[in-house]
Amino acid sequence: MTRPFLIFPLVVLLSIALVPKLAEAAPDVQEIVDRASAAAYYQGRDGRAAVRMSILDSQGRERTRDFIIMRSDLDDVDNGEQRFYVFFDRPADVNRTAFLVWKNPDADDDRWLYLPALDLVKRIAPSDERTSFVGSHFFYEDVSGRGPREDNHVLEEETDIYYIVRSTPKESGTAEFTSYRNWIHKATFIPVKTEYYDEAGETYRTYTANAVEVIDGYPTVVQSSMEDRRIGGETKMSYSKVKYDLDLPEEIFTERYLRTPPRRLLR
């Protein structure tokens, strides 16, 4: 009976002493980047979404890609190994094509493509992660995440809303940018905007999160765009039917489900 009375003032005292300090102290920049990567690519244990990509070329012609993407984090570790399963619906010539990625943060990803007309499970050579994903302005790396340890990060600025972090590749020549800057939303750690700079310091590529929704308790970017002045045009991505923590079985991410799509999960 007496113990709560003793503890209560202690908690209050500690809180008063600690809270302003916690609020003031900015987290270490690597921690900010790690948390931003986790917020953008590792929400929940696993997840599924229907994605529509609208690719506009420099002359305004539109191409679209509709696909379902499923993702599972191995052992639910943020910024660790992941599995992705992508099932294409449109355009018609890639209908039923499936794509499987085992993402290894410290090595090349393992990737497979299933071509249904040939019943062929094709292993895809690891590519430059910074090449176009299905002809869009998004790179593979933009879809599956850039390793938070691949760059040196500097917290350039902090506003009431954002951490503004500049990142420079640890190994120069491994990416087409000289550096990039990320506006990371402080409350959610969601990257709201990313600008990529060339050698002259000019922005040539811009990612923008255009809409965020809280789904199953996780803030989720449901509309985003990537503009690239070198390529010309932009790609808009919208996510629908987003669900988290579905307990996706690990076997979804195997050859079995490339050949026989997991129909129930693709609806």
Partner: peptide, 28 residues
């Protein structure tokens, strides 16, 4: 050297130093 461009879809008019994004719907 940074161009003060506001990417499309941001919803807010670009001000002269507008490289800082406005929060997208759902955050702000």
């Amino acid at each position: 050297s940074l161009p003060p461009s506001l990417p499309t879809g941001l919803g807010a008019p670009a001000d002269e130093k507008g490289t800082v994004p406005t929060l997208p719907p759902g955050l702000g």
